[in-house]
C-alpha cells in the first residue's frame, strides 16, 4: 500500500521494531486467553483441576459440552434471548428510521426544536428509579416488553442514520419525487429504505448485539426465571456459581468436590460466545463501516 522507504535510519528501525512488537504483543495477549478457554473447555476434568492445561487441550473430550447442552436453563435462555433480539431489533430499527427520516428533511418545520427534544434525552435522564417506576406502572414487568422497550431507542444511532440519509439521499431526488406527486410515506418506503441497506445493517447489528449481550433490563424487570435471557442464566452460572448439580451427574463425586465447576464454566463461556463469534467475521466490515459513519457526523 505504502511506497518503500527511501531512507531507513537507525531510529526508523527501532521504531519499526517497537510498532511491530506492539502489534505482536497485543495480538498474543488478546488471543491467549481466548485459546486457553477453548482448550480448557475441551480438556478432561482431571487435566483442568491438575493445572496441566497451558495452551492446547489435554486429553480432549466433549463431556463438558454435553453437560452444557443438557442444561434446560441454558437452552431456555438461548430461546428467550433469540426472541428478545429479533423482536427488539425490529422495534428499534423502526423507531430509529421513523425518527431519522423526518429529522433529515429540511421541509420539516420546527426541525431544530424537535431535534433538541431528542438530543436532550442523550445528555440527561430521569435515572434508574423513575424509569423503573414507569415500566412498572405500565404493567410491563415480567413481560417480553420490559426487556425490549426501555432501551429500544438510541439517539446516537438515530443521529448516525439521519446523517446517512442527509448525505446519501440527494435533495434533488426528494424534490423530483415531490414534483411527481410522491407523498412522504411513499418516499420513505420506495426510495429511502431501498437506498439505506448498509446503514440499516449497521444499526440493526448494533441493536442486535446490544440486546443479545445486555442483561440490565432483565435484571431490573424480570423476576420469573422462565423469562430469563441467556445472559442472566450465565450470570447465575459464571458469576454467582449457582450450578445446577444435575449438569455434573456424569462425573464422580470426588471430581465434583474438586471444583469441576471450573471446567463447565469454560464450556459455558465458549457456548455463549460462539454465536456472536461465528457471525463476527461476516459482520465485521459492517461494524467498521458503522464506526466510520459515526465518526463522520458533522
Amino acid at each position: 500500500m505504502r511506497s518503500r522507504n527511501l531512507y531507513v535510519t537507525r531510529s526508523d528501525r527501532a521504531l519499526t521494531l517497537f510498532l511491530d512488537g506492539f502489534l505482536w504483543f497485543w495480538t498474543l495477549v488478546v488471543a491467549y486467553p481466548l485459546v486457553y478457554v477453548l482448550s480448557a473447555s475441551l480438556s478432561s476434568p482431571q487435566a483442568v483441576i491438575g493445572g496441566k492445561v497451558w495452551l492446547l487441550p489435554v486429553e480432549p473430550t466433549l463431556r463438558a459440552y454435553q453437560a452444557v447442552f443438557r442444561n434446560k436453563m441454558i437452552l431456555a435462555g438461548f430461546a428467550n434471548s433469540t426472541l428478545y433480539m429479533v423482536l427488539g431489533t425490529a422495534i428499534s430499527l423502526a423507531l430509529t428510521v421513523f425518527a431519522a427520516f423526518p429529522l433529515s428533511r429540511r421541509e420539516l418545520a420546527g426541525r431544530k426544536a424537535l431535534n433538541a427534544l431528542f438530543l436532550f434525552t442523550m445528555i440527561f435522564s430521569g435515572g434508574m428509579i423513575p424509569t423503573y417506576l414507569v415500566v412498572k406502572d405500565l404493567g410491563l414487568r415480567n413481560t417480553v416488553w420490559a426487556v425490549v422497550l426501555p432501551s429500544a431507542f438510541s439517539v446516537w444511532n438515530m443521529i448516525i442514520t439521519r446523517t446517512y440519509f442527509q448525505t446519501n439521499i440527494p435533495d434533488e431526488l426528494y424534490e423530483a419525487a415531490q414534483l411527481d406527486g410522491c407523498s412522504d410515506f411513499r418516499f420513505l418506503r420506495r426510495v429511502v429504505l431501498p437506498l439505506s441497506g448498509p446503514i440499516l445493517a449497521v444499526i440493526g447489528l448494533y441493536y442486535a448485539v446490544g440486546l443479545w449481550n445486555g442483561y440490565f433490563n432483565a435484571l431490573l424487570y424480570i423476576d420469573s426465571q422462565r423469562l430469563y435471557p441467556l445472559q442472566l442464566v450465565l450470570r447465575d452460572i459464571l458469576v454467582l456459581s449457582n450450578m445446577d448439580m444435575s449438569m455434573m451427574q456424569d462425573f464422580s463425586e470426588m471430581l465434583r468436590k474438586q471444583g469441576l465447576a471450573s471446567l463447565l464454566k469454560y464450556a459455558v463461556i465458549v457456548v455463549a460466545s460462539l454465536p456472536v463469534m461465528l457471525a463476527y467475521p461476516f459482520v465485521q466490515r459492517f461494524f467498521v463501516k458503522g464506526v466510520m459513519v459515526g465518526a463522520m457526523k458533522g
Binding site: 423502526a94 423507531l95 430509529t96 421513523f98 425518527a99 427520516f101 423526518p102 429529522l103 420539516l108 424537535l114 427534544l117 431528542f118 434525552t121 440527561f124 435522564s125 430521569g126 435515572g127 428509579i129 423513575p130 424509569t131 417506576l133 414507569v134 405500565l138 422497550l149 426501555p150 429500544a152 431507542f153 438515530m158 412522504d184 410515506f185 420513505l188
Partner: peptide
C-alpha cells in the same frame, strides 16, 4: 411518521424526568 418515536421518548425518557 415522527409521532411514534416522539411518543416513545415522551414515555420512556421524559416521563422518568417528571418522576425524578
Amino acid at each position: 411518521i415522527l409521532l411514534l418515536p416522539l411518543a416513545y421518548v415522551a414515555l420512556f425518557n421524559y416521563l422518568p424526568m417528571y418522576g425524578a
